[in-house]
Design a protein around this nucleic acid. Structure first.
Length: 254
DNA sequence: ATGGTAGTTGAACTA
């Protein structure tokens, strides 16, 4: 099975990119973030015609997540349980016996902003929910834009990013609390090239200069990790015309 | 040190 994650930064703009990539990459399950579409505007027909089931939860202008799958989708969750939040960032589904959780973790803006506190609080609540999900399901995959670079190896210039948003110690510790549940950062389960990133700011020719961060992750529970075959960054779509600032990440397992 | 770009919405906000 091939699973993937892609922050598309507006599905309205990126639908052609997504259809092209589905055709070439053939993922079984794909989690999208930052669709930026209300549900009535979601392009469900185009995606169905491409051969994928789809579920989504969106809002106007910001956030929004979707899951596309070759097989039927069931047991859909659209919120962290017990938390009232208009921001559409969570989509948990079951496909082919895999519990697939798609996340758009809050960005946080800056370590001294209110949004940073919201991010850390959100991650704490996420941890508790994932702990419960792991009780209920053995085969769990958590994908998404985590808005956290796990280590300095995931940052083009660690000194410039030291203690900055996406790289601060509290964010990395919050991610570690998730990994403590038994999850593996699947990308690091394999030998990888250095300076491998999934996001490059649009500004300053950052992609051309490979000034990026790896903040899009695929976490696997032990039962999945045991049969992991690969975990890669699919860099191609970032080279296309009018790209998202993120590129897809993917993992294969038996 | 600042602003650089992109998307949505319609001058400002988020990333």
């Amino acid at each position: 099975m091939k699973v993937a994650s892609w922050n598309v930064n507006s599905l309205n703009v990126r639908l052609p990119h997504v259809l092209e990539w589905l055709e070439s990459a053939q993922p079984d399950i794909l989690g999208l973030q930052e669709t930026k579409l209300t549900d009535e505007k979601f392009p469900r027909q185009a995606i169905r015609e491409a051969g994928y089931e789809v579920v989504f939860t969106g809002q106007k202008t910001y956030n929004g997540v979707a899951v596309l799958a070759r097989s039927p989708i069931s047991d859909v969750i659209t919120d962290l349980p017990g938390i009232e939040d208009p921001q559409r960032r969570v989509l948990g589904v079951t496909v082919d016996g895999v519990r697939f959780i798609n996340l758009y973790v809050p960005n946080g803006k800056a370590v001294d902003s209110d949004k940073y506190g919201y991010k850390l609080d959100w991650l704490k609540k996420l941890r508790d929910w994932l702990a419960a999900e792991c009780e209920r399901h053995e085969r769990v995959v958590v994908v998404g834009d985590f808005n956290i670079a796990p280590t300095d190896a995931d940052v083009h210039d660690p000194d410039a990013w030291r203690d900055q948003i996406l790289c601060s110690a509290p964010e990395r510790e919050a991610l570690q609390r998730l990994l403590d549940l038994g999850f593996t950062d699947s990308f690091r389960a394999f030998e990888q090239p250095e300076m491998a990133f999934s996001w490059w700011d649009y500004r300053m020719n950052n992609f051309k200069r490979n000034r990026g961060l790896r903040i899009d992750l695929i976490l696997t529970s032990p039962a999945i990790t045991a049969s992991l075959q690969s975990s890669t960054i699919e860099r191609d779509p970032r080279t296309w015309e009018r790209p998202s600032d993120h590129t897809p990440v993917a993992a294969r397992f038996a």
